[in-house]
Structure formats: C-alpha cells, structure tokens
Amino acid sequence: MKAAPAAQLRLLDLQTVDTALAQLAHRRRSLPEIAELDALARELSKLEDERVRAQVAVDDLDRDIARLESDTDQVRARKRKDEDRLVGGGLPARELTALQHEVESLTRRQGELEDAELALMEQREQAQANLDGVTERLSATRANRDEAQRRHDETLAGISRDEEFHRTARQAVVADLPGDLVSLYLKVQDSAGVMAAALVQGGRCGGCRIEFSGSERARLKAAAADEITRCEDCRRIMVRTSESGL
C-alpha cells in the first residue's frame, strides 16, 4: 500500500487523538472516587444495619418500660384503694390485718417495679446514646458520600468534555486521510491495540521500541517514501521521517 508522506505524518495525528481518547477512557474507569464511593456504600450499609439494631434496642426498652409503668400504675392504684379502706376503718380485725399485709406486699412490689424501671431507664439512656452516635456517624458518612459523588460527577463531566473535543478533532483528521490508509490503521488497532501507528526514531520502532536489525534497517531505507511500512516485530504502521535514523 502507498500513501503520501504527508498523509503518513497525518496518521500520527490520528494516533495522538486515539491515544488521548484511550487515556480518557482509562481515567473514566479508574477514577479514585469510584473506589471511594464503593467503600462509602459499604460503610453506609454497615452503619444502617447498626442503626437499625440500635433503634430496635431503644424500642424494646421503651416497650419494657411502658409495661413496667403500666404494672406499677396498677399496683399503685390497688395500694391506694387498700389504704383508703384502712383509713376508712370499720373493718374486722382479721380483715384489717390481712389488708395491712397486702398493703405491705404491694409496697414491696411497687418498689421492685420502680427499681426495675429505673434500671431499664438507665439502659435506655445508654441505648439512646448509642443510637445517637450511630445516627451521627451515618449522617457524616452520607455527607462524605455526597461530596465524593459531587467530585466524581464533576470529574466525569470534564472527561466527557475532553472526549467530545477529541472526537471532533478525530473526525477532522480522518477526513484528511485516504480511506484505505484509515482502514489499514483500524485493522492494525484491532490486533495491536490502541497504538497502530508509530514514528520511527533512532533506528527503532516507536511502538515496540525494538531496535532494527541490519536487514530491517536496509529494507526500510530502500522503501519508497510513499510506501506503507510495518514493523516486523509488532506489525504496527511505521512512519518514517528524515530524523528516523535510517
């Protein structure tokens, strides 16, 4: 295949644009915010589970405290009723004695219930503090996630702008090149990767950086300026200039 030396040089412009696009694609895939967002998502899931457990602990204690308060109120009401009967007088001695014993028993029971309720209230205070701490950490982590997402989106927007710029430039370069040269370039890209065309410098292929053998150097030196040459080792298109060291 033949192409004018100017077209071969222009092919390097296409390679430059494609390399830039490949670098932008790699940057898009490997943004540090991606790993940060993944880590924050795991942390948020962990904290949310912890928050649910802490909330359940508070709710369970509230339910137990409410039950004890109800029991205590019932004991107080019954005790008050018995005390009113004692104050009212007129009871037979045996019934009076039994009523006094019941008031004493209810007093002890009320004390037990109040002590149990106090213990639960202390536990509830600690459980609430734990819930508040988890909620605070959850809020801070969400703020960190939102900030990381903002940076991620902002960086992606910049990458998208750069990609659009290079795609526009690529279209202009391709329009300047012969169709068969572009077809060969794309074919080489399929097998060699992003770099399909490389400048020959210092007697080396700019793609694989392998120094030419004597026979390879002679072959390239003898080739016409408009002949498309390819590296024997990496098969990339080699672009020769007066500074190629041949």
Score class of each variant (00 low, 15 high):
Val239Ile: 12
Gln201Ala: 14
Arg137Met: 12
Asp115Phe: 06
Arg167Val: 09
Met121Thr: 13
Leu156Pro: 07
Asn130Ala: 08
Glu114Asp: 13
Thr107Cys: 03
Met195Cys: 05
Ala20Glu: 14
Val52Asn: 15
Asp13Gly: 05
Glu95Asn: 14
Ala41Phe: 09
Tyr185Pro: 03
Arg230His: 10
Val17Met: 03
Gln126Ile: 12
Val194Tyr: 04
Leu156Tyr: 11
Ile228Phe: 00
Ala192Glu: 10
Leu91Tyr: 10
Asp18Lys: 07
Gln110Phe: 04
Glu83Thr: 04
Ala4Met: 07
Gly133Phe: 01
Leu184Met: 00
Asn144Lys: 13
Gln126Glu: 14
Val17Asn: 14
Arg10Lys: 08
Thr107His: 00
Gln15Phe: 05
Asp62Ala: 10
Ala66Cys: 07
Arg42Thr: 11
Gln189Asp: 00
Lys81Ser: 12
Arg42Lys: 13
Ala140Trp: 01
Leu220Met: 08
Arg63Trp: 05
Ala116Met: 09
Leu61Tyr: 03
Ala6Phe: 02
Leu96Lys: 12
Arg150Ile: 11
Ala148Met: 04
Thr168Pro: 03
Gly214Asn: 08
Ala224Lys: 15
Lys79Gly: 05
Asp84Trp: 03
Glu114Met: 10
Val194Leu: 07
Gln110Lys: 14
Ala41Trp: 01
Ala57Trp: 10
Val173Phe: 05
Ala223Lys: 02
Ser45Trp: 07
Thr72Phe: 12
Asn130Val: 14
Asp18Trp: 03
Glu48Gly: 09
His26Val: 07
Phe165Ala: 02
Arg76Asn: 03
Ala175Arg: 09
Ala175Gln: 14
Ala3Pro: 01
Gly214His: 04
Leu14Phe: 02
Leu86Val: 11
Asp38Trp: 02
Arg142Tyr: 01
Glu211Asp: 09
Gln123Asp: 11
Thr135Glu: 13
Glu154Gln: 13
Ala223Met: 08
Lys221Arg: 13
Arg85Asn: 11
Ala148Gln: 07
Ser191Cys: 01
Gln126Cys: 05
Asp59Thr: 14
Ala169Gly: 08
Lys81Val: 13
Arg27Gln: 15
Arg217Ser: 12
Asp18Arg: 06
Leu24Met: 10
Val17Pro: 00
Gln171Met: 05
Arg235His: 13
Val200Asp: 01
Ser213Leu: 04
Leu24Asn: 04
Gln15Asp: 02
Leu40Asn: 02
Gln110Gly: 06
Asp13Ser: 12
Arg109Gln: 10
Asp180His: 15
Ser139Ala: 09
Glu125Val: 14
Leu44Val: 10
Lys46Gly: 12
Asp38Gly: 00
Gly214Arg: 15
Asp38Val: 06
Leu9Val: 02
Ser45Phe: 11
Leu24Glu: 09
Ile65Phe: 04
Leu21Val: 11
Arg145Ser: 15
Arg145Met: 08
Val17Gln: 09
Lys2Asp: 05
Leu68Arg: 12
Arg124Tyr: 03
Leu9Gly: 13
